[in-house]
């Protein structure tokens, strides 16, 4: 529904990070921070504003939004940071073969059109490396449905990855370079969205109304 009008391009790039880890500290947040740092590094001299959304802090607000249909002021602020970004790093723990319920609930309260064209880096954590494909069979279809642009490399970190030389750093670096390439040319954060834009061709009397 939102129409997009190009505004003056800004040189500042906005990068949003959504971390759905439940414990504090969480390995999900650890991975999210690594992905964010690596992406910033690839963006080099570009001015980058980084906003990290810890869903744990918003868990009750997300549930209330599911029940009432509207976001609390602080959840609304978080949603705006995510949907107005030039790129999104989305990281969730894998629970019972898929993204966590909290992660999906947050996605569910977004306007389904609000991530259209959004460059996204998909990340996930889990206890065992056997769930690494959850990124590709669980997360990737979700973001495809939302018309987001998920970069080809997803980064899965099992518990064992934090203590071995199994190539986690290389995967992080590769995925970050893919995201940075899209963020560098993104104008999403400089665009103005008009919530009252009427759909193309809308007539208040209808297409047949006065015949």
């Amino acid at each position: 529904m939102s129409a997009v009008e190009p505004a003056t391009p800004s040189f500042r790039r906005k990068l949003a990070v959504v971390s759905a880890g439940l414990s504090q500290p969480s390995s999900t947040r650890l991975l999210a921070d690594r992905l964010a740092e690596a992406t910033k590094a690839w963006l080099g001299n570009l001015d980058v504003e980084l906003d990290v959304i810890e869903l744990r802090d918003l868990a009750q607000d997300v549930t209330n939004n599911l029940l009432t249909g509207y976001p609390s002021p602080r959840l609304e602020a978080a949603i705006e940071k995510v949907t107005n970004a030039d790129g999104l790093i989305a990281v969730t723990p894998i629970f019972t073969t898929s993204y966590s319920g909290l992660f999906k609930s947050f996605i569910d309260v977004l306007d389904p059109q609000s991530l259209t064209g959004m460059p996204v880096l998909l990340g996930a954590t889990g206890g065992t490396e056997r769930h690494s494909l959850a990124i590709d069979y669980g997360m990737r279809p979700l973001f495809s449905y939302l018309h987001a642009v998920a970069v080809p490399t997803g980064v899965y970190a099992a518990s064992s990855d934090w203590g071995s030389d199994a190539g986690l750093s290389e995967r992080i670096d590769r995925a970050a370079s893919e995201l940075a390439a899209l963020v560098a040319v993104s104008e999403r954060s400089a665009q103005t969205r008009d919530p009252f834009a009427l759909p193309e061709g809308f007539s208040p009397v209808g297409s047949f109304g006065a015949q």
Binding site: T63, N64, L67, T68, Y70, S72, P73
Partner: peptide
């Protein structure tokens, strides 16, 4: 119905 079991009465009256 609608808002029960969700936000607190204090939050809801404020919002």
């Amino acid at each position: 119905p609608v808002y029960g079991h969700g936000p607190s009465m204090e939050d809801f009256t404020e919002q």
